[in-house]
Design a protein around this nucleic acid. Structure first.
Length: 596
RNA sequence: GGGGUUGUAGCUCAGAUUGGUUAGAGUGCCGGCCUGUCACGCCGGAGGUCGCGGGUUCGAGCCCCGUCAGCCCCGCCA
């Protein structure tokens, strides 16, 4: 097919903006053909651009036979230029914004043809994700991804504007950095100039932003790509974007207030009203009530301790917990409602399967439904006992209670997960809500069975809680950190801390996690040295931009807000990265590939 | 590293009870007809390595073993 040249053809309007008020105007439009409807001597064509759709029409009594033939030759996704008169439609379409008008063609340019797309370019039904990723450039033409990418751009712009307004300085820190111990696996980049030596891509610009505080910039912001060579999830990509923030002379509350202001504005971007300050929940309470360090507060149900109800019970499993002096506890969740009370044997079995996979022995339950009281441990519960359970759990009518027994870390895991699943299945989550909260007072350190030492929960630059300083040397596992996560609808969308700003505390911290003086010097010498030259008290946080935008877009997968994401196996199906390289490149780098 | 799940026409899927003739549907695509369509309609047509390899069987889309790929989860992610 002979193509037209763009020449000096340019658009006078955007397709989606034409209205009845434009009637009578001669317009020039650009875009892609969404669909042709050929009625013989009357032909319609929907023309799509970034701003919307408009219907073009040609009628054999009005246009030349050549133009009509040309129009009939157009196929889906051809790239077109159209010239014509905006006219009121004979038959209007109330379902589209431009549905009152159409453009009566006087000229048509075909700038390019297109093969039949391997995936549908409209929104339903959605093609398999591997096909979508392979032809991502087509996938990105779809309305939903166009919307997501545009919202992402708006969010990034809002964020820059917000921090600019608040006197932050935007920085760019090195991508080629130094590999440090602790934390995630690094992506490494070989140095050609220094054979056998490697740069590491940043897991986060943590140390740079702290050093910029030492330099006196006081307020730092960077929207930066970070890299972690760990396995992927629906909300985790090997490269992701962080909104990195750091401030001098601040307390935890100052950082939180600054971020809350931003969240209010970001929420408003999609028409959600949220009220600051957000709830603050100590880590301990989050685990106790919600079984999670990132609870979804769109559902208000709380885990309850019911151990003491069973201190005289015949039910050995629960009785043992009551006798264990806190080593083991019986904890329960009650889901109110008819639907919960009517949970079937089969559904309960499925829940039990989930509980077992999470490490529980089984899933004791009690339910109150149309047939009255039923329970997996009913034979151990008399009428009085049932009343006691109902009173403790706050059961007023129908519903389902599930129980977990064992050490806290296990019962939290089980009940935390089942809380989410059941709340979702039972419609107990208010989907319209944007539920922010801060989880605070995280432990500073946790024991690593693998490494046989304490490791930092957050990172090794996190300040110990001032009240717990002594514990760092006497009982490190009990020491709290001045660290805080911001959680939205059950997703951790950011985390930060007040940092250690003096060399002595920093050395103490390194000691606590088993990094000796020599190692500390060789790995973090620059930091220790900087802290010794008048580092101000400082702290900050980093937001996961991808997750945040994912939630703004009402998606449950981070790939929907990343233009060119990778698969769960960390491949790009479009470019087929990663790939073997030319042996010559390896020789230059003095690297041998071992593909065994 | 482990567990679960999916893979059949360009795309989305069906293919049951028990392994049995020529593997179907919708949509898309190609051709014809059609002056008010907008998920256009009507008529006709083309289109299949049932992911790949091996095995069991007289016979495998279906059963078995292996393998590859997508997705979800655990571990991992300071």
């Amino acid at each position: 097919m002979k193509l037209d040249r763009l020449g000096d053809f340019s658009r006078t309007h955007r397709n989606g903006e034409l209205r009845l008020s434009h009637a009578g105007q001669k317009v020039r439009l650009l875009g892609w053909c969404k669909r042709v409807r050929n009625l013989g001597s009357l032909v319609f064509l929907d023309l799509r651009d970034r701003w919307g759709l408009v219907q073009l029409v040609a009628n054999e009594t009005e246009v030349s036979p050549d133009l009509l033939e040309k129009l009939k030759a157009v196929r889906s996704e051809f790239v077109l230029g159209a010239e014509g008169l905006v006219s009121e439609r004979e038959s209007k379409n109330p379902n589209m914004p431009t549905g009152e008008i159409e453009v009566r063609l006087s000229d048509l340019k075909i700038f390019n043809t297109a093969q039949t797309p391997p995936i549908p370019v409209d929104d339903s039904p959605e093609a398999n994700e591997d096909l979508r990723l392979k032809h991502r450039f087509l996938d990105l033409r779809r309305d939903s991804l166009q919307r997501n990418m545009i919202l992402r751009s708006q969010a990034a712009s809002l964020i820059r504007n917000y921090f600019q307004r608040n006197d932050f300085v935007e920085f760019e820190t090195p991508i080629l950095g130094k590999s440090t111990p602790e934390g995630a696996r690094d992506y490494l980049v070989p140095s050609r100039v220094h054979p056998g030596e490697f740069y590491a891509l940043p897991q986060s610009p943590q140390l740079y932003k702290q050093l910029l505080q030492v330099s006196g910039f006081e307020r730092y912001i960077q929207i930066c790509r970070c890299f972690r060579d760990e396995d992927l999830r629906a909300d985790r990509q090997p490269e992701f974007t962080q909104v990195d923030v750091e401030m001098s002379f601040v307390r935890q509350e100052d950082v939180q207030a600054m971020i809350e202001g931003l969240m209010v504005e970001l929420s408003a971007l999609i028409g959600k009203t949220v009220v600051a300050p957000f709830p603050r929940l100590p880590y301990k309470d989050a685990m106790e009530w919600y079984g999670s360090d990132k609870p979804d507060l769109r559902c208000e149900l709380k885990i309850q301790d019911v151990t003491s109800l069973f201190d005289k019970s015949e039910f050995g499993l629960f009785r043992a917990a009551a006798d264990s002096q806190g080593k083991s506890r019986v904890r329960a969740l009650f889901f109110p409602g008819e639907k919960a009370g009517a949970y079937s044997r089969k559904q309960l079995d499925e829940l039990q399967e989930v509980a077992k996979q999470l490490g529980a022995g089984g899933l004791p339950y009690a339910k109150w439904g149309k047939e009255g009281f039923a329970s997996s441990f009913k034979k151990f519960v008399d009428a009085e006992g049932e009343v006691a359970i109902k009173t403790r759990l706050g059961v007023s009518s129908e519903g389902l209670a599930i129980f977990a027994v064992g050490p806290d870390d296990q019962t939290s895991r089980v009940l935390g997960e089942l809380r989410l699943r059941l709340a979702k299945a039972l419609g107990l989550i208010d989907e319209s809500k944007f539920a922010f909260l801060w989880v605070v007072d995280f432990p500073l350190l946790e024991w690593s069975e693998e490494d046989k030492r304490f490791v930092a929960c957050h990172h090794p630059f996190t300040s110990p809680h001032p009240d717990d300083l002594e514990l760092l040397e006497t009982d490190p596992g009990k020491c709290r950190a001045v660290a805080y996560d911001i959680v939205l609808n059950g997703y951790e969308v950011g985390g930060g801390s007040i940092r250690i700003h003096d060399a002595e505390t920093q050395s103490k911290m390194f000691r606590a996690i088993g990094i000796d003086e020599d190692e500390a010097k060789s790995k973090f010498g620059f930091l220790l040295s900087a802290l010794a030259f008048g580092a101000p008290p400082h702290g900050g946080l980093a937001l996961g931009l991808d997750r945040l935008v994912m939630l703004l877009c009402n998606c449950n997968n981070i790939r929907e807000v990343i233009a060119f994401p990778k698969t769960a196996q960390a491949r790009c199906l479009m470019t087929e990265a990663p790939s073997p390289v030319d042996p010559k490149q390896l020789r230059e780098l003095k690297i041998q590939a071992d593909r065994s």
